[in-house]
Nucleic acid binder design. Sequence first.
DNA 1: CTGTTAGCGCCTTCAG
DNA 2: CTGAAGGCGCTAACAG
Lengths: 357, 357
Amino acid sequence: VSEAVRLSDVARAAGVSLGTASNAFNRPEKVRPEVRARVEDAARALGYSGPDPKGRLLMGGKVNAIGVIHGALITTAFENEYLREFMAGAAEICDEVGAALLTISSLNEEAAATGVRSALVDGFILHNPRNIEKLVEKANARRLPVVAVDSDPDPRFNSIHLDSRGGARQAARHLIGLGHRRFAVLAMLLMRIGPSGPSYHAPGEGERKLADTSFDAHERWLGYGDALAEAGLPINQVPVVESSLNSPGVSEGARMLLDAAPDATAVLAMSDSLALAVIEEAHRRGMAVPRDLSVVGFDDISEAASAAPPLTTVAQPIKAKGRAAARMILEPPAAPRHQVLPVKLIVRGSTAQPPQG
Amino acid sequence: VSEAVRLSDVARAAGVSLGTASNAFNRPEKVRPEVRARVEDAARALGYSGPDPKGRLLMGGKVNAIGVIHGALITTAFENEYLREFMAGAAEICDEVGAALLTISSLNEEAAATGVRSALVDGFILHNPRNIEKLVEKANARRLPVVAVDSDPDPRFNSIHLDSRGGARQAARHLIGLGHRRFAVLAMLLMRIGPSGPSYHAPGEGERKLADTSFDAHERWLGYGDALAEAGLPINQVPVVESSLNSPGVSEGARMLLDAAPDATAVLAMSDSLALAVIEEAHRRGMAVPRDLSVVGFDDISEAASAAPPLTTVAQPIKAKGRAAARMILEPPAAPRHQVLPVKLIVRGSTAQPPQG
DNA sequence: CTGTTAGCGCCTTCAG
DNA sequence: CTGAAGGCGCTAACAG
């Protein structure tokens, strides 16, 4: 193993000053072609392949990478359908400008904070993480731009979010319009996309309090409540199961929900993964969807349209959201921007009138 | 916008030396609790959230991130089924140790080279990129460890690959054993997972030369050839279509193949995405699989088992491969290691005896 | 335990 | 175009 060769070595070998060698690499036009060639030859001869990024970095240069914190294991970014599409959107923008995409572990608050403090990136996409203020503060200390996605919008920093409440309201109204009156809600437990199992909230216990404190989940919850209230159905009368989003968790949640609410005619699922799991579980029990049970999801992941039956769901522009987030980091606006993306009910085959009697 | 605050500022504010301040953050046990508290208070007051990673980096510290170059757009890492599983495997290891995962754009050689030269990571997973020697050389110049995946194994650097040839041989033998004699091959065009369309190679033109020069594709091709030769069927007599792996490309490739080889009773597809596209296209033409056409894939992505019909395929341990690759970077072996992963034919529902007559 | 002093590898003046 | 010098922010080594 030979010694590491650095710019000064190359300069010496080429019989050039350090400054000139630097220019030869970074501003080739400022150095005579002949000299440049000499430097390049020397570099090749020494096995030097350009200035080490570490040095340049210190001078305040860009890293050419953007970091994503998504409140879950890195693995999730490659496995969860929704997150994959979001990441793919962000990746599209990175591809356009040749930047790299750093996926940062952030299962717990501490990991996320460490990530924001130490990741070598030009900015962070904070996708609905826990304790976002703290993360933003740490990013600010490093003077790195930040965009909050699907989090409680704060006037002090960039954000992108959806009209989740409106979307959820539409979903519930759709079912009410079809004649449904007996509902069940399958909620998502974003905060621990992990091993923990689903939990059941029985109806009628006064004010309902979900374990998931994430902004988006809460908004969807409120939207369901809006529509049910319009129909004179207090939401605290409907059985709720909260379920994490990994694959075993989702199935278990669906099972628990159908056990807990055997007479429901319609399920409001806060995400498509959850909705698809409910359909699967219903089929397993010999129920037909939508004949015996209507199911409406949220997100419109690509699997939704091709499911059997095709899923009625609230579509959000997942990929566009990813793109918008990445752009916000690559070209930070002068003043904080707050973008809200539209949401739209897509009626497909998983909802119908409730069964007679 | 205030000035950036650095460690020396904190030290001064706390009435401590720079070295002590550094220790307070990095080796807290080496500094009296009382003093440490003073430093921490000062830091808090100034809005300083720990030493800037850029400085530490220069000292030769670890970045705590591993880079992946996969010869395609970053987007692909989140969209292609096979790649997703591979990345998820690598991510699992990162999650275990709290490292981050950097996905680097590498659609063309130049982008890949730039990535290896400038990405801030502790090492690179080179997943079957073009011109791997050059990339390894650049990584060596930076003294960063490297592992080549599914590439031509080179004794000089770490590698992980499959017995692709053996797997392909098994796949073809399986079909031959069922009685098939009229084959078609759907090959993958790894080098441009991009816009370019599929290309057809008519049979009987002497030595066959595929456009895709990737190691793994070639090995699979040789494996098919081995088995066909055993049955007295020269592989240059079988129609071949090469197709890129993005979603429109795959469908187009399947269409072109069935057009070009209408009398084939069996299709050897070099990847599951391709195989599933062939099944879909066959169904579209009113052909039943496996009654009218047998199809065998390669990879055993998770969709393979749940397809209709379930796909007969050559399983490779995709996730384990990702895990092994990440481990190789996080704990580089002293001497180059060359790991070969097993491959295994899984017979499911997409293959059967050829139709009579 | 503390303070001081060198660098880490590079970029940018600034005067020649 | 050159050469020297200063600094980016931090860490490590060593003397107090």
